[in-house]
């Protein structure tokens, strides 16, 4: 199976939030299908941890020159997923389509993924981590992701990496030509050394990257420092053990020499 990719195109988005509703409904249905929860209970609570797509609507500028943008907060299914790397129980895995998925049965709710994720995506609820799983079960059975399936305006589309990138670049080029504003495909290329490429890309005017909260250098300095010190610690510990053994051998030799010369007494 080739790499599966999703794209959010900010231009045709009509801010209906059907994608968010679709995501929430699908995840509730999943619980019902797997007999984790009854139908009544699944529709009563807000169960926010099951809404893996949270739109953040903002208004930019001042009236009458104002406009609305909808930034989506979601898992980007990073190529070099820091959550997957840090998980101490291997509860985060990569499926065939490269979706980064939390295996609930293995998760112990230690929050390591939350600390590692530079986009602050995972949510801890009832001792388990929750985040978008890319509807891998639907995709592996030939269906589209729930959010993509719900979108009425074609603002969300998915497919193989090649298909999605081709369409995304074509749209970005068209928008640039029509509006005169440079449009980019965020996440199509390696974003930085922490996350690599993203499997959830966004077509956005370049000047609005910040407005859509699309971080061009996503990383957590504290966690980078932790990783660097781990390397120093490993090298340092080996050097200290080697130095200690070396010192003991040297010290015993020197001691023997001193005893043979009669400078110290043997005890």
């Amino acid at each position: 199976m080739s790499v599966n990719m999703k794209c959010y195109d900010t231009t045709p988005c009509i801010r209906c939030f059907a994608c968010m509703v679709g995501c929430s409904v699908e995840n509730r249905l999943r619980l019902q299908r797997e007999n984790h929860i009854g139908i009544e209970k699944s529709v009563q609570g807000r169960l926010t941890h099951l809404s893996h797509l949270s739109p953040q609507r903002r208004e930019l500028g001042t009236f009458p020159n104002s406009r609305q943008v909808t930034a989506f907060h979601h898992c980007n299914h990073c190529e070099d997923a820091p959550c997957l790397e840090i998980c101490p129980v291997d509860a985060i895995i990569r499926r065939e389509g490269k979706e980064v998925v939390v295996v609930q049965d293995r998760c112990i709710g230690c929050s390591s993924c939350l600390d590692a994720c530079p986009f602050d995506v995972p949510v801890i609820k009832n001792g388990k981590a929750y985040k978008c799983h890319g509807c891998y079960d639907r995709v592996e059975n030939g269906l589209k992701q729930s959010c993509v399936n719900s979108c009425p305006s074609g603002a969300m589309f998915s497919g193989t990496k090649e298909e999605v990138l081709e369409e995304a670049h074509k749209r970005a080029e068209l928008y640039t030509k029509k509006t005169g504003k440079e449009h980019v495909v965020y996440g199509a290329n390696k974003v930085n050394g922490t996350v690599g490429e993203l499997r959830w890309i966004t077509i956005v005017p370049k000047e609005d990257l910040e407005a859509y909260k699309l971080d061009t250098d996503p990383k957590k300095l504290a966690m980078s420092a932790r990783e660097a010190v781990k390397v120093v610690g490993a090298v340092g510990s080996v050097a200290i053990v080697a130095g200690s053994i070396g010192h003991l051998i040297y010290w015993l030799g020197k001691r023997k020499e001193k005893i043979s010369k009669g400078e110290v007494e043997e005890k």
Partner: peptide
């Protein structure tokens, strides 16, 4: 919490050495 996690690990590594 992220800073706490990093500080916990870094101080342990220094102490461990």
């Amino acid at each position: 919490a992220t800073y706490a996690r990093a500080a916990h690990a870094i101080s342990f590594i220094i102490l461990g050495m």
